[in-house]
């Protein structure tokens, strides 16, 4: 039987169901991993240097990471950040905000074979560098961009 024949209204529902099952599968191990290997020390570190020391790796600059952040934040409380890695075997993506009380904002585990692109929103307390870090094959890579947090109100 030709598999493509099932694509119709019913096929779509089945497809969605399959997708949901896949999503559940994908999320479950991440949650599990997070509880098992959440690096508490890194999340509690108060400087970029101390965070990296907790992670136990020193990053090298890479142009194979695309970090998308606004140049000037529209709202410092919810700044959209996208990190996309084209480094082979990307296994984790980290987001750091240089001058936040605790710079490490998020760690994403990237299951093997997944497109290494994550999007989140972070709080940015004041103008500073945002870091997109990528772990691949046990090495750490990074790129940075400055996001400005301004009082605003004087343009035009």
């Amino acid at each position: 039987m030709n598999q493509t024949e099932t694509f119709g209204p019913i096929g779509r529902r089945q497809f969605l169901r399959a997708g949901a099952a896949f999503a559940a599968l994908a999320i479950a191990p991440i949650k599990l991993l997070a509880s098992m290997v959440r690096p508490e020390g890194a999340f509690q570190a108060t400087t970029v240097e101390a965070t990296l020391a907790e992670l136990g790796m020193q990053p090298v600059e890479s142009s194979d990471i695309v970090l998308e952040t606004p140049n000037i934040a529209e709202n410092g409380a919810v700044v959209p950040v996208t990190v996309t890695s084209s480094i082979p075997n990307t296994s984790r993506i980290f987001v750091m905000v240089e001058k936040n009380p605790n710079p490490l904002a998020a760690i994403f585990d990237i299951p093997e074979g997944t497109e290494a692109s994550v999007q989140t929103r972070v709080k940015v307390a004041q103008t500073c560098l945002l870091y997109g870090l990528v772990e691949a094959d046990g090495k750490l890579y990074m790129t940075t961009r400055e996001t400005k947090v301004t009082l605003g109100g004087c343009g035009g």
């Binding site: 004087c154 343009g155 035009g156």
Partner: peptide
């Protein structure tokens, strides 16, 4: 459009 509208003017 002006890229910083919600910053330069009230969001």
């Amino acid at each position: 459009a002006f890229p910083y509208t919600p910053i330069a003017n009230p969001g």
